[in-house]
Amino acid sequence: SPEVQIAILTEQINNLNEHLRVHKKDHHSRRGLLKMVGKRRRLLAYLRNKDVARYREIVEKLG
């Protein structure tokens, strides 16, 4: 489901952010981070168009 995919991506994004705080010059990982953020944004847009209630619920849960 989109909610699960968004939750997994959010966790991976948070982990990668911590990694990049330590390894500032790791541009390869930064590119992966940007791809993940874009994918999460697309999934959220899809969910917002399909079911606003589910969209609001996941945004509330994940912050």
Rank of each mutant, 00 (worst) to 15 (best):
residue 1 S to I: 07
residue 1 S to G: 08
residue 1 S to D: 12
residue 1 S to M: 07
residue 2 P to H: 07
residue 2 P to V: 15
residue 3 E to S: 04
residue 3 E to M: 05
residue 3 E to G: 03
residue 3 E to P: 03
residue 3 E to K: 02
residue 3 E to Q: 04
residue 4 V to T: 09
residue 4 V to G: 06
residue 4 V to F: 10
residue 5 Q to L: 15
residue 5 Q to Y: 12
residue 5 Q to W: 12
residue 5 Q to H: 06
residue 6 I to W: 03
residue 6 I to F: 03
residue 6 I to C: 02
residue 7 A to I: 14
residue 7 A to F: 15
residue 8 I to S: 06
residue 8 I to F: 12
residue 8 I to C: 11
residue 8 I to H: 09
residue 8 I to M: 11
residue 9 L to D: 00
residue 9 L to V: 02
residue 9 L to Q: 01
residue 9 L to I: 05
residue 9 L to E: 00
residue 9 L to N: 01
residue 9 L to S: 01
residue 10 T to K: 01
residue 10 T to M: 07
residue 11 E to T: 08
residue 11 E to D: 07
residue 11 E to P: 01
residue 11 E to F: 07
residue 12 Q to H: 12
residue 12 Q to R: 12
residue 12 Q to D: 03
residue 12 Q to N: 06
residue 13 I to G: 01
residue 13 I to S: 00
residue 13 I to M: 02
residue 13 I to V: 01
residue 13 I to H: 01
residue 14 N to E: 06
residue 14 N to Y: 08
residue 14 N to C: 09
residue 15 N to K: 14
residue 15 N to V: 12
residue 15 N to A: 14
residue 15 N to H: 13
residue 16 L to F: 06
residue 16 L to C: 07
residue 16 L to S: 01
residue 16 L to G: 01
residue 16 L to I: 07
residue 17 N to G: 06
residue 17 N to W: 15
residue 17 N to M: 15
residue 17 N to S: 13
residue 18 E to Y: 08
residue 19 H to R: 06
residue 19 H to A: 05
residue 20 L to H: 03
residue 20 L to I: 08
residue 20 L to F: 06
residue 20 L to K: 02
residue 20 L to M: 06
residue 21 R to F: 03
residue 21 R to C: 08
residue 21 R to I: 06
residue 21 R to V: 05
residue 22 V to K: 11
residue 22 V to F: 10
residue 22 V to Q: 11
residue 24 K to D: 09
residue 24 K to F: 08
residue 24 K to Y: 08
residue 24 K to R: 10
residue 26 D to F: 04
residue 26 D to N: 04
residue 26 D to K: 07
residue 26 D to L: 04
residue 27 H to C: 11
residue 27 H to M: 12
residue 27 H to F: 13
residue 28 H to L: 10
residue 28 H to G: 10
residue 28 H to K: 14
residue 29 S to T: 08
residue 29 S to C: 12
residue 30 R to W: 15
residue 31 R to V: 10
residue 31 R to G: 06
residue 31 R to H: 08
residue 31 R to S: 07
residue 32 G to P: 04
residue 32 G to W: 15
residue 33 L to V: 04
residue 33 L to W: 06
residue 34 L to H: 08
residue 34 L to F: 09
residue 34 L to M: 12
residue 35 K to S: 09
residue 36 M to F: 04
residue 36 M to C: 05
residue 36 M to E: 01
residue 36 M to P: 00
residue 37 V to A: 04
residue 38 G to A: 14
residue 39 K to T: 08
residue 39 K to F: 08
residue 39 K to G: 02
residue 40 R to D: 00
residue 40 R to F: 11
residue 40 R to M: 11
residue 41 R to W: 11
residue 41 R to Q: 08
residue 41 R to M: 09
residue 41 R to G: 06
residue 42 R to V: 08
residue 42 R to I: 10
residue 42 R to N: 04
residue 43 L to F: 03
residue 43 L to H: 01
residue 43 L to P: 00
residue 43 L to K: 01
residue 44 L to Y: 02
residue 44 L to Q: 00
residue 45 A to G: 07
residue 45 A to S: 08
residue 45 A to Y: 05
residue 46 Y to A: 11
residue 46 Y to W: 12
residue 46 Y to F: 09
residue 46 Y to E: 15
residue 48 R to P: 00
residue 48 R to L: 07
residue 48 R to N: 02
residue 48 R to E: 04
residue 49 N to W: 13
residue 49 N to V: 14
residue 49 N to L: 14
residue 50 K to D: 05
residue 50 K to W: 09
residue 50 K to L: 15
residue 50 K to F: 14
residue 51 D to G: 02
residue 51 D to V: 02
residue 51 D to R: 01
residue 51 D to M: 03
residue 52 V to R: 12
residue 52 V to N: 11
residue 52 V to K: 13
residue 52 V to D: 07
residue 53 A to F: 08
residue 53 A to L: 12
residue 53 A to H: 13
residue 53 A to C: 11
residue 53 A to D: 14
residue 54 R to I: 07
residue 54 R to T: 06
residue 54 R to S: 07
residue 54 R to N: 03
residue 54 R to D: 03
residue 55 Y to V: 02
residue 55 Y to T: 01
residue 56 R to E: 11
residue 56 R to I: 13
residue 56 R to P: 02
residue 56 R to F: 11
residue 57 E to Y: 05
residue 57 E to P: 00
residue 57 E to K: 07
residue 57 E to N: 06
residue 58 I to L: 10
residue 58 I to S: 03
residue 59 V to N: 02
residue 59 V to H: 02
residue 59 V to S: 03
residue 59 V to Y: 04
residue 59 V to E: 02
residue 59 V to Q: 03
residue 60 E to S: 11
residue 60 E to M: 10
residue 61 K to C: 09
residue 61 K to T: 10
residue 61 K to V: 08
residue 62 L to T: 03
residue 62 L to W: 05
residue 63 G to C: 15
residue 63 G to N: 13
residue 63 G to P: 05
